[in-house]
Design a protein around this nucleic acid. Structure first.
Lengths: 242, 242
DNA sequence: ACCACTAAATGAATGACGTTCATTTAGTAG
DNA sequence: CTACTAAATGAACGTCATTCATTTAGTGGT
């Protein structure tokens, strides 16, 4: 982020250019600049990405609109389109940034199985707070997301070093990723998602299984399921190594 | 403003009271009925669900709007809201119907591992054509989707009969489902999703792994990854049985 | 048989939201 | 100095989901 970002304090002349162009409803907040190219660029992709992330953290993906994003940047919505061609591109920028937060360091320091475990939990935790991005990532060409590509490289290298047959590496990573994405949704599910309510009588086996899980449930159900599946995948894939 | 706003059709004069109320652009197609409750109900939830499914098949989820849905039913968009409270409810109806297409019959006829295999492939295949529903399903209380609940019952029963410890059944199913949902996205990914383009030099291990997979690739990559992961899960979970 | 109530349709309006475009201003290359 | 281009503003636009007033028809109660 090499954003020069003036502090908005450059009020040039007399204060009395007067009476901000700001009326809208209640608050002050935006005496924006006048039309025309500003002396120093206000926006760039990094700044937009940061602002998007802040906005998403604060207001969620529902509150994440181009208008709201523009507002936090003190800019007209249309200004964004000088730097990104669509909202989808902003989402890709956010996605790529988030991927850089996924911890792949264990592939340098730990044995393969532990490295996969650490990476997978980290990956799931990052995206469980950003499930609306999953449909975007899942079909995103890696070319469009350099940091995501870097993660794949780190993981591939780990698999390679662990003695994985080359032609299985991608398939194994894809399978793990699929499980991780699906599990990320699971984290966000409501606690009573499996409460069968009035229909409980017609589903005795399911209802009983749900009850039995709940009895022993100090751990979060999503974590139990994730651990169970992840360990099975690690064990199964571990057997493929030469 | 509760402006009574004349109906624009009040042209007092003469000509034919006739001449369908249909002008819109090109085609005939909709000489709809006049205002007011029709003698026989035109809409119900089943009809809406069917029409939604047809529309989605024909136009995809992009073309699936409440207006388009209303058009195929020869009804005003607002009429839909007498039967469903939101578009989301329509999606839930569609989801529930699709789940009834998932084949659980193997749990009655095959050994546990083969039953899981058949069910999982069927489940993935159904929803790989409906990935926009996945965010809906993943957090949908089972109470709201009776056919989905029925599927869970069938699967739970299969696990129970196979000697699974009760308190692990739900976790195992959730893990499988997570993998299935993630894999459904994978099916829709573009073929060149892993083409690292100009960045190939900086990602040698990843690029090599991608190439090696492509060499041996008569099977669809998504199917290879799904099979690999599914077999690992089945093997791992199979060991939990008593 | 009448009457109140409710159900189910129309059609007009509303308010977001993503996006485009004409316009303005300012830096930059020849 | 002069084009050209980059980066803002602000006013549209088109699309959607959704709401509301209105109209008509079936229904249950007396």
């Amino acid at each position: 982020m090499e954003t020069p970002l003036h502090t908005a304090a450059e009020r040039p002349g007399m204060p009395a250019a007067t009476s901000a162009p700001t009326d809208p409803h209640r608050p002050d907040a935006k005496p924006r600049r006048r039309a025309g190219r500003p002396p120093a660029a206000v926006l760039d992709q990094d700044g937009i990405t940061e602002a998007a992330l802040r906005l998403i953290r604060k207001s969620g993906y529902d509150g994440f609109t181009m208008a709201a994003l523009a507002r936090t940047l003190n800019v007209a919505p249309s200004a964004l389109y000088n730097h990104v061609s669509s909202k989808r591109v902003v989402l890709v920028l956010v996605e790529d940034h988030l991927t850089s937060l996924v911890d792949v360091s264990a592939f340098e320091a730990e044995p393969w199985d532990q490295a996969v475990r650490d990476w997978a939990w980290s990956y799931r935790d990052v995206f469980s707070k950003h499930t609306p991005l999953i449909p975007v990532i899942a079909v995103l060409p890696v070319t469009d997301a350099p940091k995501t590509l870097a993660m794949y490289e780190a993981v591939s290298t780990g698999f390679s070093r662990a003695g994985f047959p080359q032609e299985r590496i991608i398939s194994a990573i894809v399978a793990l990723e699929s499980f991780i994405f699906g599990s990320a949704y699971d984290v966000t599910a409501p606690a009573d998602i499996f409460d069968s309510g009035t229909m409980a009588e017609s589903t005795p086996n399911f209802t009983s299984a749900v009850d039995r899980l709940a009895e022993k449930g100090y751990e979060k159900p999503a974590d139990v399921a994730f651990s169970l599946g992840l360990e099975a995948l690690i064990a199964g894939f571990g057997a493929l190594r030469k």
